[in-house]
Amino acid sequence: EVTIKANLIFANGSTQTAEFKGTFEKATSEAYAYADTLKKDNGEYTVDVADKGYTLNIKFAG
């Protein structure tokens, strides 16, 4: 089991951190699915992958 950390960075400057656990593939998939649910209210997003994929910096356009 691994932990994927998602740093969520919103257009208004606020930030939030979420963690997803499971296999690497499952946790990564859940992180992207979570970002997709936030897209409606926060706009499109870009992802900067860090720490060999264990950290995702997800920035929303607003």
Rank of each mutant, 00 (worst) to 15 (best):
N12I: 08
D36A: 07
A33K: 15
K39G: 06
Y32D: 01
T55R: 05
L38H: 10
T55P: 01
A18M: 15
E30I: 07
A18H: 15
Y32C: 04
S29K: 10
E44M: 14
F60D: 00
N57I: 15
V2P: 04
A35R: 00
E44F: 09
K39A: 08
L38V: 04
E1N: 07
K59Q: 10
K26G: 15
S14T: 13
T46K: 14
F24R: 05
E25A: 07
G53P: 04
G62M: 07
T15P: 07
T17D: 08
T3P: 04
Q16N: 09
I4S: 00
G13C: 06
Y32K: 07
K59Y: 08
D41V: 15
F20S: 01
D48V: 14
A31I: 14
E44V: 11
V47I: 08
E30L: 10
F24C: 04
V49R: 07
T3I: 12
T28P: 01
N42E: 12
K21S: 15
F20G: 00
G62L: 07
K26L: 15
G53A: 04
V2I: 11
I9W: 15
D51G: 05
Q16Y: 07
D48N: 14
T3N: 06
T15L: 15
K5T: 13
A31T: 05
A33F: 11
T15N: 12
V49P: 07
A6Y: 01
D36T: 05
D36N: 11
G13D: 07
G43Y: 03
G22A: 07
T23C: 05
I58C: 03
T37K: 08
V47E: 02
I58H: 00
A27Q: 02
N7P: 01
D51R: 03
A50M: 10
G62H: 10
T17F: 12
G62I: 07
E30T: 13
I9M: 10
A31C: 05
T46W: 06
Y54R: 06
E44K: 07
N42M: 13
K5L: 14
A50I: 12
D51C: 04
K26N: 15
N57W: 09
K52W: 08
A18F: 10
F60E: 00
K52C: 06
V2L: 07
T37R: 11
D41E: 10
K5I: 14
T3W: 06
Y34I: 04
A18N: 14
E30N: 13
I58N: 00
I4D: 00
A27K: 01
T23F: 08
V47A: 07
V49F: 12
E44T: 12
D36H: 06
